[in-house]
Amino acid sequence: MTNKTLLITGASGGIGRATVHLFASKDWRVIGVDRVSFGENFPAGGLFIQADISRGDEMESIFTQAQEFTDSLDALVNNAALQIAKPILETSVEEWDAVMAANLRSVFLGVKFAHPLLKARNGGAVVNVSSVHAIQTSANIAAYAASKGGLLALTRAMAVEFAPDEIRVNAILPGAVDTQMLRDGLGRGHVGDGDVQSRLENLARKTVSGKVGTPEEIASAIYFLADGEQSSFMTGQALVVDGGATARLSTE
């Protein structure tokens, strides 16, 4: 049986890297995309493409290379993202547009380019990595929250349009996960003013589970949505994986 093939953007980051290794351990061939190098341990038999998904011409080049590598895709994971943590009044038009290009337009383009490859093997799965900021947010992160909210609406639209091609489209909404992006955003003042470890511990206490998630936990949820045997009856859905953070009333 031919191995299944995954294309994932943001492959070099915390969640992306964990997802690459999980799928490879399940005998999937992996095409990874990131604007920074993955390093020397990209899975054998796969393909790493260094490119900027916020640029339309580079998105087209990514899928030209993907088509040279494989004649079909079983899953597309739109994971790459840009986060700018600033008050709305201090966010420039250029910064707003950069977030939308990286987090939303890239998914629109990626699915357009990936559609023939997904359809080639009688359907597949698209997993869009959104965020809990799409449904519950905080101050000084408006552009990111807006892009991730738009991604939920786009996920539903894709699910409706691609159902005749047997392509399922779902979104995953991670909460606080210990990645470099999370650590870079800890200076917004929402979890105190101590060192990074103190801020992480304060953040963990805000979740029902009492912990910050790991990239591997999110990767497992992505695999569930991508795997046609486990989630075959799911499409157009938003799966929240946040340690229960959004389950608790903010007034308690």
Rank of each mutant, 00 (worst) to 15 (best):
Q237G: 14
M59S: 04
T5Q: 11
G39P: 03
G192N: 02
L89E: 15
V30T: 00
V99C: 00
V20E: 00
V129M: 01
V107W: 13
R156I: 09
L152K: 04
F48V: 08
T251N: 14
N128F: 02
V160S: 06
T137W: 06
A247F: 12
V20C: 08
Q50F: 06
F48C: 03
L89P: 07
M59Q: 14
A114K: 01
N122D: 15
R156K: 15
G14V: 10
I53F: 04
L249E: 11
D97C: 04
G213N: 07
D52P: 00
F23T: 08
A226D: 07
T207S: 07
R105E: 09
P87V: 00
T70L: 02
L152F: 08
F42D: 06
D193I: 10
L225R: 12
E217D: 10
I49N: 05
F48H: 04
D242N: 10
R188W: 14
L186G: 06
A146W: 02
A238Q: 13
V36K: 12
G46P: 10
R105V: 10
L152E: 15
N122A: 14
A80M: 06
L173T: 01
P164N: 05
R188F: 13
L200C: 00
A247M: 15
H21C: 06
W96T: 00
N3F: 02
A120C: 00
L152H: 10
G175A: 03
L76A: 11
A247G: 13
E217S: 06
D74Q: 12
K148H: 10
H115D: 09
S92H: 00
N41A: 12
E217V: 09
P215Q: 09
I8P: 03
D52M: 00
L182V: 03
M181E: 05
N122P: 01
K119R: 12
A134K: 02
G10S: 05
H115Y: 15
N128V: 06
M158F: 15
D52H: 00
V126E: 03
R156P: 04
G45C: 12
T246N: 11
R121Y: 15
T2C: 13
A102P: 01
S106D: 07
N79Y: 03
T9A: 04
L203G: 02
V208A: 15
K206P: 00
S198W: 03
D34M: 05
P174W: 04
A157F: 01
A146L: 03
Q230H: 15
G32W: 03
Q83N: 14
